[in-house]
């Protein structure tokens, strides 16, 4: 018999209860149980960072957590960033600077940077590259992502 549990997770402010198999990863829970398909799965071994979400406000690989571990906790995904269809400053800076091409790694990068810019409102390029080293992108060569991040930081500080 499959080992299951009923869990309650607050995802993007919404309380969600589901009965899940205990081996279900957080990434698959978000994508396939809650249909929040913005969180992408790129390697399932914690390297590519495409599945990065915030758990309790802290970035984590959703492929390396089990859904049951989030019982009673808060999770934020890429779907939480925009206000309706209004892009937030980070998203807008990505669009303005061509910080994405195929868009697959983008959600994980946005969540990594959401945490990073919250804690480092005025980063330098080296710090941005350092934090981005936890996310793989095969399209952009990172240059436009770095530019977008610095631009977003400026906007968020009110300097735009």
């Amino acid at each position: 018999m499959a080992d299951t549990r009923t869990i309650t997770v607050t995802v993007n402010g919404r309380v969600c209860s589901r009965e899940v198999e205990t081996r279900l990863t957080l990434a698959d829970f978000l994508r396939h149980e809650l249909n929040l398909t913005g969180t992408h799965v790129g390697c399932e071994h914690g390297v590519c960072g495409a599945c990065t979400v915030l758990v309790g406000g802290v970035s984590a690989r959703a492929c390396l957590m089990l859904a049951v571990q989030c019982d009673g906790r808060e999770v934020a995904t890429v779907e939480s960033l925009a206000d309706g269809d209004e892009l937030n400053p980070l998203q807008q800076a990505f669009r303005d600077n061509h910080g994405l091409q195929c868009g697959f790694c983008t959600p994980g990068i946005l969540m990594t940077l959401t945490e990073f810019l919250r804690d480092h409102p005025d980063p330098g390029e080296a710090e941005v590259r350092d934090v981005l080293s936890g996310n793989l992108c095969r399209c952009t060569g990172y240059q436009a992502i770095v530019a977008a991040t610095l631009d977003a930081a400026k906007r968020m500080r009110g300097g735009a």
Binding site: G49, S59, A60, R61, L64, M65, G134
Partner: peptide
């Protein structure tokens, strides 16, 4: 050690 997201956990 790894990256920010992995050190968080």
């Amino acid at each position: 050690v790894g990256h920010r997201q992995t050190r968080n956990r």
